[in-house]
Structures are given as structure tokens and as C-alpha cells.
Computed example of a mutant assay.
Amino acid sequence: MTSHIAVPHRARSPRVPFENRWTSGHQAREWNCELDQLGVANVRAMLCEHEVHHRDDPVVIFEIPPGFIRDWLAFHDRQAARRQLIWRASVLSLGLVAASAAVLAAFR
């Protein structure tokens, strides 16, 4: 009897969530998962170390080329900027609602 482990749809997806011009879908998905496990801060530090000390090496981490890592970091930077923009817009909106309520309460 075989048991099936439920894998989230995101993990089964053959595509990475950013433009990939470096390798096939399966390899890109593996690289994406490896980088996700390391985290943005660690990957950024490893890429900086590579750029300073091993610029001529064709790979940075786990046989992943620097171009793929730069694209991965750019994607995560865009996502962080988007989250920050949404947060700021929501805080501004709530502030305007609160200020409007305060002004209306003052005139009553």
C-alpha cells in the first residue's frame, strides 16, 4: 500500500515566480527552493562574498549561477517593496479615516 503525501500546489509548480532565462523548469524550481531555504539575507551575503572574492567562478551557491541569484533577489526585492507600499497605503488610509472621524466629532 502506498501513501501519498500532500504537496502544496506551489511546490509542484514547474515554474518559478520570476523570469528565468538560466535553466529548465525543473532545475529552476530546485534552485528556487534551495535559495528559499537559505533566505534572502543569507543569499545576498553569499552573492556579495562571491562578487568580491570569486568573481570569475561561474557558480555561487549549490552550482547556481550568479545571474539566477540576481534575478531571484530582484524578485524578492520587488515583493518586499510591494508589501511595504500596501502597508503604507493602508496606514495612510486608516489615518485619514481616523482624522476625518475626529474632525466630524469635533463639529458635533
Rank of each mutant, 00 (worst) to 15 (best):
D57Y: 07
E19G: 07
P17T: 13
C33T: 09
S24L: 10
D71N: 10
I86Q: 11
R10I: 15
R10F: 12
A89Y: 00
A45W: 02
A81F: 02
L104H: 06
V52N: 07
M1E: 07
H53K: 15
A74F: 05
F107W: 08
G39A: 05
A74M: 06
P14N: 08
R15G: 03
Q37M: 11
R82A: 13
M46G: 00
G67F: 04
I69Q: 10
R82G: 06
F62H: 14
F107P: 00
V60D: 04
H4E: 11
L73K: 05
L35Y: 07
F62D: 14
A28K: 00
S93D: 08
D36Q: 11
E30N: 14
R44S: 15
N42I: 01
L47V: 00
R83S: 14
R88G: 03
A81N: 09
Q27V: 12
A98L: 14
S93G: 09
P14T: 06
D57M: 05
N32Q: 08
R15H: 13
V7W: 04
P8W: 02
H54I: 01
V40Y: 10
S13I: 03
A81K: 13
F75T: 01
E34Q: 12
W72L: 02
I64N: 00
A89R: 10
A101Q: 08
W31H: 10
P66G: 15
S90M: 11
H9Q: 05
A74D: 14
Q84I: 00
A6I: 02
C33I: 04
V40S: 03
V59P: 01
V60Q: 07
R78V: 00
F18Q: 09
V60A: 11
V40P: 01
E34G: 08
P66L: 03
D36C: 12
R108Q: 10
H53R: 15
P8Q: 06
V40T: 02
H50W: 14
G39E: 08
I86F: 07
H4I: 14
F18R: 05
Q27M: 10
R10H: 12
P8Y: 05
H9N: 06
L85P: 00
S24C: 14
I64F: 01
L94T: 00
R29Y: 02
V103H: 02
A101R: 07
A99M: 13
H54F: 12
A89E: 14
T2L: 14
A99V: 13
G67E: 10
D57T: 01
R82S: 13
S3C: 05
W87V: 13
A6L: 10
Q27L: 13
G25S: 11
G39Y: 03
C33K: 04
I64A: 01
L96G: 10
R108V: 11
A102Y: 09
E34T: 11
V91Y: 02
S93T: 08
E34I: 03
D36L: 08
T2Q: 08
M46A: 15
Q37K: 11
A106D: 13
A99E: 05
P66K: 12
A106H: 12
T23S: 14
Q37V: 08
L94A: 06
E19D: 12
W72G: 06
A81E: 13
S100H: 01
C48T: 04
V97E: 10
S3L: 10
L35I: 06
E19C: 06
N32S: 06
V103M: 04
W87L: 15
E34R: 11
R10D: 15
E51G: 10
A101S: 11
R29W: 04
